[in-house]
Amino acid sequence: MTENLNQIWVFIEQSNNKPSDVSLELLSKGRKLADKTKGSLVAIIIGENVKAIAVESFKYGVNETVIVQHPSLKFYRTIPYSRILIDLVKKFEPRIFLFGATIIGRDIAPRVASATKSGLTADCTDLQIADVTYLNRKHDNLLLQIRPAFGGNIIATIITPETQTQMATVREGVMEKHFVEKPFPEKITEVNFTPQEIDEAVEIIEQFLEESKVNLKAAPIIVAGGYGLSNKENFKLIYELARTLGGEVAGSRAAVDAGFVPSERQVGQTGITVRPKLYIAVGISGAIQHRAGMQDANKIIAINTDPDAPIFQVAHYGIVGDATDVIPKLIDAYKNKLK
């Protein structure tokens, strides 16, 4: 691989030889950051047979892709994967290294940061490049790692001015992925891997993947219910409204914890980040953790009995009233217009 201390690396997570969305989102973001720092964007892919992903990565604007392939690397395991990344970082010293804030990303990134003594910021929602003066020292092209903290009550900008490698994990869905107009010519470097005994300290016995039928991120209309619905029976109204409007059902954390709706439909800081055309929040007070996952929706309708509920402050349309009263009216009004 080219020696260059101004590289931006993205770790490409893959499962069954498919790259994860967040990794591709990061490539698109990484491209923008690299343009700003005049650096190069490098994708790092580990797996069994990942050449096809490497080829695909160029559509997102990478300058170079590094692959590490071995049958024993088919599934993610902490030790061999982190060992590979630690060796690569020590050897090539990238300036920035980005990971998805997924279970895998949050498992491997801290290990790599620990071994290479790099600064690491978790769960970023935005990344920027800026010249920064910190403690009277000027640093050019530093990575601003922006994340909610303190349960989402503050937004912190973190920097790592003194380490060569600035690492961050980034939440899924907050960056947009897109193809570049003119991809760079393919440059794929394969790095050899030698298994070691320590790799076998943890072995995978079985894996269950529950194919999620829910695709909240792609839904143009989302009807979300909260704890204010009081019970599962009332929550059926959410499903009915979603069905009428051709939308998907979602819930706040409180609604998930209460068992009104499965966790795969949770929107918010610990759930999914969505940006639909229309988001209808019913009986959701609008805690900051929830708003973090939906405030970028094009239009937001809030329905709540409490006129002071914080959700009204991010809503475009607010209806003060009980869900059992408002939703049937909304369904009727919609059906009447279609006639």
Binding site: G119, Y134, P148, A156, T157, I158, I159, T163
Partner: peptide, 11 residues
């Protein structure tokens, strides 16, 4: 600690 808090904004 390599990470430094550069800025904090209350939401």
């Amino acid at each position: 600690s390599p990470t430094k808090v550069y800025k904090i904004e209350s939401v």
